[in-house]
Design a protein around this nucleic acid. Structure first.
Lengths: 285, 285
DNA sequence: CCGTATTACGCTAGCCGTAATGATG
DNA sequence: CATCATTACGGCTAGCGTAATACGG
């Protein structure tokens, strides 16, 4: 029977041009390769080479066979790769989110519910990329601020989030009941990186200087020790509590208050049953 | 390394559903198949089956792998088939013709020039079929009555042919210098089968009864012993001579005199060099 | 119990490498 | 004579079959 390693040898010979060179690439001896090529001709039942005593070349048949062999080999590789990829995707839940807070919560809940599964998370600021990523299989679940009306895609509400200023009590505006982004424009503010779509809102504060601190502990220290204004959200505060000596004041700008939607492909519903139960059941005003 | 016989086994298991059934189809023992399947999982690095002590089934990975294996196997089969086909076509010159006379001559000349080659011939009455057959590779050479203006196709003139009546000398019209088909309409005529495009001309003789005789010797006897009119052509006469006691009288209808053109693909020119020399050199008025 | 998968244990066919031979430029 | 292909011969390993084991409907 025709076998892939025979075709591999043929392809190597086609590339190298002589048995010696090909056998070196293949890490076998010339005689072995010579025999294999004869066997292959025998197998197909057709002459593939023109042989002189001292030289062996592909004939027209051989060139076609080598070319087809090359593609068959790459298809065999693709087979393995596709199966491995399916396996990985079956063992992975990839969550993509437009905002950090729902991502924390989802990732925590899912890794709790699906022990042994690989949970991969991604925070993006582009909703379109999340939608196409969901359709293409890059993400199993995506969190958006608008319901995605896509074919074969379902979604559940996942509560809302309200952006707030997080001001030291001695800040001039600390007594306000609510504020707009413009009210603090021009000041220097503390900021975390990886804000997802919230980043867009910062454009409403063009004259503000932001000090970005990635490291969580350091950020906490700055919150405590400095009197720089920062952001907070109701959802972050519910999770981490408010910083000492600071007040949380809602921001009124449109876009500072959003709702979240968790979307998934209909075909993943069975696999995600537990996660969807969690997302739907939780009481989120 | 992944091999086709492993995939063959996987495909068989997928079709049969149990190791026992598959092993019987494959003519190997169950243990051998059992091991092969483990080896295959190992090779791909992914679980392909759900195993209970008493039952083995494909899981999602396995179903994908089996499906891909099936297509890969059929592609491997196609590889062999295509190479064999190329080999056959390299060893064959297929001549298709719209008329018998040029086909005899070409076939004879070519089998002389290309000893060891397989010469296959076909006589058709549809010029379009010959043209498409030439393009698709069904025919290496085709004989037509009109130059085929096709991309990548060249042609040479191959002389002409004049249709004649072949009348016994005692026939009332035997003294004519030329005749039209209508002149003999209504009589009973002797006819050979396989006339190619000439068949169309018989429509001009709707009231004629044709006695068709395939067997060459019998046809000759009828020519000699009967006084039935028959057809002949200048080209046939040059080859076989005229029958005793008969005269050959040209037919004047349009279409009773034609020129022939031998067409071939430009890419076959090298292969056909000898044949083309013959076709071109011969002096054919 | 019969059907199914797995494990254990030799065997062997197929493939390989080394060495020798032949041909060519 | 350096390079390449082929032939001859002996070794080894991957895959096989038989037999035995284990589990389940």
């Amino acid at each position: 029977m025709l076998e892939l390693y025979d075709l591999e040898k043929l392809a190597a010979f086609a590339r190298e041009g002589t048995l010696v060179a090909a056998s070196e690439k293949l890490l076998i001896s010339q005689p072995a390769l010579s025999r294999s090529m004869r066997k292959l001709e025998d197998e197909i039942g057709v002459e593939l080479f023109t042989r002189s005593k001292n030289r062996m070349e592909l004939n027209e048949n051989g060139r076609l066979a080598a070319e087809l062999a090359e593609t068959l080999l790459s298809e065999a590789g693709a087979l393995v790769e596709r199966v491995r990829q399916l396996d990985r995707s079956r063992k992975t839940i990839a969550v993509g989110s437009i905002a950090p807070a729902p991502l924390w919560e989802l990732a925590a809940a899912i890794s709790e519910l699906y022990r042994g599964m690989l949970i991969s998370t991604a925070l993006l600021d582009d909703a379109e990329e999340l939608r196409t990523g969901l359709l293409s299989g890059t993400y199993t679940l995506v969190v958006l601020t608008e319901p995605p009306e896509l074919p074969g895609v379902e979604y559940l509400g996942f509560g809302g989030e309200q952006l707030c200023f997080h001001l030291p009590i001695n800040h001039p505006l600390a007594g306000a009941r609510e504020l707009s982004l413009a009210d603090l424009n021009g000041e220097t503010m503390l900021l975390r990186p990886d804000l997802g779509f919230w980043t867009d809102l910062l454009k409403a504060m063009p004259d503000t200087h932001f000090i970005v601190q990635r490291e969580s502990y350091a950020f906490g220290e700055l919150l405590r020790a400095s009197s720089l204004p920062a952001f907070n959200t109701d959802r972050a505060e519910r999770r981490y509590g408010a910083a000492e000596g600071r007040v949380t004041i809602p921001i009124t700008d449109p876009g500072a208050s959003v709702h979240y939607y968790v979307a998934y492909k209909k075909e993943s519903r069975a696999r995600l049953a537990e996660a969807l139960k969690y997302i739907g059941s939780e009481d989120r005003r």
